[in-house]
Simulated scan of single mutants.
Amino acid sequence: MEFSGAAAKSTATGRVAVVTGAAGGIGAALAQRLAQNGARVAITDVNADKLASTAARLTQDHPGAIFAQAGDASSERDLSSLIAETESQFGPVEMFFANAGVGGGVGLDASEHEWGQAIQVNVLGHVRAARLLVPRWIERGGGYFVSTASAAGLITQLGSATYAVSKHGAVAFAEWLAVTYGKQGIKVSCLCPMGVNTDMLTGGDGNSAGAVAQVSAKAVTEAGTVLEPLEVAGIVLDAIRDERFLILPHPEVLDFFQRKTSDYDRWIRGMRRYQEAVA
């Protein structure tokens, strides 16, 4: 993938980017695509061992372009440290990919801890990063915030209430950020994929056991194609080049969303039927 002219300047070439949740999946793929397109990239994840392995792999192909620091993407202290170290290594952060996410609990049996973790990581991690970056971006004349939400943030998620609610929150915050600061040079995109071949979908994150979680995964995989992370990352960079807010790697999500908003009652009935079909 190549960019040229003003599009390249607003996308990756020569830019400093931070990607959270980057030990694997979409985060690692975003870091790879960014580095391939000339960005210097800081990556972070709570899984320090896996992050180190990913950093070593990316550094081999892109010497000097990768900086890794383990941390919690929902912690303002960790985010502040990450941004400071990134700017020490590479210069001012110009692009931030709030990609870290958790699946959380399922149904009404989700614990208070699972609810708290989903809100902290999937929503407040984005808020805290923006709180740290947006004021300095306004002073510098611009910046780009990319939120990884989910199709579940637009058309809900069967099974997991914590995931559906927190991802709706992520979409809402990205919308608010774009509306509130768009005229001050802050660009915002919101990624809402459906099925992507990551540990969260396949169960490798350790949070997908149980019949209800299996229904959630089946609902996603049967609704459309399961994409590879690198495919999604390429689509994200294309969307950033065009400065599109809503990034939908699965085009059918737009159709589902339009049906939902055109007749909510019919959509609720349809989702009930679909839930019964995949159970």
Results as ranks from 00 to 15, higher is better:
21 G>P: 02
117 Q>L: 11
14 G>C: 03
127 V>T: 00
117 Q>W: 02
91 G>I: 12
246 L>G: 09
23 A>E: 06
170 A>E: 00
252 E>Y: 07
219 A>P: 00
191 L>R: 11
139 E>R: 08
156 T>A: 13
191 L>M: 11
72 D>T: 05
245 F>W: 07
111 S>M: 01
164 A>Y: 03
242 D>I: 06
11 T>L: 07
251 P>G: 15
148 T>D: 09
7 A>S: 11
240 I>D: 01
237 L>F: 09
220 V>N: 12
108 L>R: 10
157 Q>N: 14
272 R>V: 06
106 V>K: 04
161 A>Q: 06
49 D>T: 14
165 V>F: 01
191 L>F: 14
123 V>S: 04
278 V>L: 13
47 N>I: 05
179 V>R: 13
203 G>M: 05
66 I>H: 06
43 I>D: 05
246 L>C: 12
252 E>I: 01
70 A>E: 04
187 K>A: 15
131 R>W: 04
165 V>R: 00
121 V>D: 05
127 V>F: 08
124 L>G: 04
143 G>S: 00
202 T>W: 02
43 I>Q: 06
247 I>R: 03
154 L>F: 08
132 L>A: 12
160 S>C: 03
268 I>N: 07
166 S>T: 13
115 W>N: 12
255 D>I: 00
241 R>W: 11
48 A>T: 15
213 A>M: 15
265 D>G: 00
224 G>C: 06
173 F>N: 07
24 G>V: 03
124 L>P: 06
25 G>L: 02
120 Q>W: 00
45 D>V: 06
215 V>M: 15
5 G>F: 14
86 T>R: 08
178 A>F: 01
57 R>Q: 15
94 E>T: 10
217 A>T: 14
167 K>Y: 11
11 T>S: 09
220 V>E: 08
69 Q>E: 13
139 E>D: 12
122 N>G: 05
94 E>N: 11
20 T>D: 04
39 A>I: 05
169 G>P: 08
224 G>L: 06
216 S>F: 09
26 I>Y: 02
142 G>N: 10
92 P>G: 04
192 C>F: 10
122 N>Q: 02
88 S>K: 05
32 Q>L: 08
274 Y>Q: 02
225 T>N: 11
226 V>S: 13
70 A>C: 02
108 L>D: 12
217 A>G: 08
52 A>M: 05
21 G>H: 01
24 G>F: 00
149 A>D: 15
231 E>P: 14
17 A>C: 15
207 N>I: 02
134 V>K: 05
112 E>R: 03
161 A>V: 11
130 A>D: 13
158 L>Q: 07
259 R>Y: 03
30 L>A: 11
28 A>F: 06
122 N>T: 01
188 V>L: 00
265 D>N: 03
192 C>Q: 07
238 D>G: 13
270 G>D: 13
173 F>G: 02
184 Q>A: 14
268 I>F: 03
2 E>P: 13
2 E>T: 15
232 V>R: 03
71 G>C: 09
205 D>C: 01
211 A>M: 04
19 V>H: 10
91 G>D: 14
170 A>D: 04
266 R>G: 04
195 G>I: 08
121 V>L: 11
150 S>T: 09
130 A>E: 11
82 L>Q: 01
157 Q>E: 08
48 A>G: 10
70 A>I: 01
134 V>H: 10
240 I>R: 07
64 G>K: 09
240 I>S: 02
196 V>Q: 10
135 P>W: 08
160 S>Y: 02
164 A>V: 09
